[in-house]
Nucleic acid binder design. Structure first.
Lengths: 213, 213
DNA sequence: CTGATATGTTAGTAAGTACTTACTTATTTT
DNA sequence: AAAATAAGTAAGTACTTACTAACATATCAG
C-alpha cells in the first residue's frame, strides 16, 4: 500500500487556447439553451475536451458565465467611429452609426440573448455594465446632434430622448429579426429599412415652423 | 392480499380554479427563473397545492408553458382603440396608441420575458403568433398614417417602416426599463419621454420641402 | 347513504447534473 | 533525463428533478 499521495493537481491550470475553446463553446450553448439548460458535459463536448478539463479551468460552472459576461461584453464601437463620422453629411453619418450599431449587436448576438434570458438572475455588476454601455451610446449621439445643431437647421429638443429613439428603432429592428425571427412580409430590404428609419429621424430633428397648432 | 385495484384516478380532472392557480404560479416563476429553472415543486407551492395535483392537471411540465403561451398571449389592444382614436388630433392619437401599447407590454411582461428567453427552443406556432401580432400592429398604425395623409400635411413615405420605427421606440423603451432595469439618470420622466418621442415622430412624418439636398 | 370527483399525503423511481477522486499520458521546460 | 505542466479516462458521489404509485379524505349530487 503505497502511501504516496498523488497531489490533486494544482488549481491554477493555464492554457489560454483551451480556456478560450471552453468559453466559446459555452457562449454558443448558453445562447441556444440558456445557462441552466446547457450542461457542463455538453460544453466540454462542444469544446472537444474532457469534462474534467473544464472543471480544472472553471471550478464552478458559474465562473464560466461570469467570465463570458465580463470579458466578452458589448463595447461601444460607436464611440470609436465618431471622429470619422463628424466629417460626413448627417444622413451618411447617421447611416454609418446605425450600421455600426447593428453590426455590434450582431457580433454579440449570443451574449445578448444570454443577457436577456438571464439578466434578472445575475449580478448587478453586469447589469450596470450594460446600462453604462447604453448611457454612453445615448450620450455619444446626443452630443453629435448638439454639435450638428450649431451647423445645421436642427430644432431645439431633448437630444437624449432623440438618441434613445434612434437606437431604440434599430435595437427593436435587431431583436425582431435576429431573436424573434421576424421576416418582413412587406418585402422591405434591410438597406431600405435603414434608409427609411433614418429619413424619418432626420425629418424628425429638422427645424421648421409649420404645422404648429 | 386484496386484489382490489385502486383505479389510477381518471386523467380528465377539471377544476378551473385550481388549473388557473397553477397557470398563474407558473407564469410568475417561469418569468423569474426561466422554464427549466422553475421546478414543478416550486410551482405547486406557489399555487398552494400539492405537486401531484399539478400533474393531474398537466401530465407533463411542457403542457403548462404551452397552455400559457397559447391562452395568455398578447392580444392587440391597439387595434381595438383605433375607432376611438381616429377622431383625436394626431398628437393625442399617437400618444394614446403609445400608452396602450406600453400598457399591453406591461400587462404581459412576464410572458414577454419567458418568450424572449425561450423563443429559440419553442414551437414555431408560438413564434408565428408573436409575429402575426407584430404585423397586425404595424399594419394598424400604417393604415392610420395613410388615412392621416389624406387630411393633413404628411409626406409620402413607406408607412410600414414608419410604424415599425414608432413601435420600435416604445418597445426598446419598455425593454430597457422593465427588463434590463435601466433608470434614466438624466431625469426625464416617462411622460416626458413619451412626449419627446411622439414629437420627434410627428416632425418625422410631416410634409415639407426644405433641407433638401 | 353511496359513489363519483377533486384534492391531499407520503414515499418512491429513474434519469440527470454539477462536481470529485484516483490515476494515466502526452508535451514542454529545465 | 527529470520534472513540471496540461490534458485524458473512468468511475463515482451527492443531490435534484420530473413524474408515479398507493392510499386517504373532503365535498357534494342523487
Amino acid at each position: 500500500m503505497p502511501e504516496q499521495k498523488h497531489l490533486p493537481q494544482p488549481l491554477s491550470v493555464k492554457s489560454p487556447a483551451t480556456r478560450d475553446r471552453i468559453l466559446s463553446a459555452a457562449l454558443t450553448l448558453f445562447s441556444q439553451k440558456g445557462y441552466i439548460g446547457a450542461t457542463t458535459r455538453e460544453i466540454a463536448a462542444e469544446a472537444g475536451i474532457a469534462e474534467l478539463t473544464l472543471f480544472r479551468h472553471f471550478p464552478r460552472k458559474e465562473l464560466i458565465i461570469e467570465e463570458l459576461l465580463q470579458t466578452r461584453s458589448i463595447l461601444s464601437a460607436v464611440r470609436d467611429i465618431m471622429p470619422a463620422v463628424q466629417k460626413l453629411p448627417c444622413e451618411a453619418a447617421l447611416d454609418m452609426i446605425a450600421r455600426v450599431f447593428l453590426a455590434t449587436l450582431r457580433e454579440r448576438k449570443e451574449l445578448l440573448k444570454i443577457f436577456l434570458s438571464e439578466c434578472s438572475r445575475y449580478p448587478d455588476q453586469i447589469k450596470e455594465m450594460h446600462i453604462s454601455f447604453m448611457v454612453d451610446l445615448f450620450e455619444t449621439l446626443a452630443e453629435y446632434l448638439k454639435d450638428l445643431q450649431k451647423k445645421k437647421n436642427i430644432r431645439s429638443m431633448e437630444f437624449t430622448s432623440a438618441a434613445q429613439a434612434f437606437f431604440g428603432i434599430f435595437y427593436s429592428y435587431f431583436i425582431s429579426r435576429e431573436i424573434i425571427g421576424f421576416v418582413d412580409a412587406s418585402g422591405i430590404s434591410e438597406d431600405d429599412s435603414i434608409r427609411n428609419y433614418i429619413d424619418l429621424f432626420i425629418h424628425g430633428i429638422r427645424g421648421g415652423e409649420y404645422g404648429k397648432r
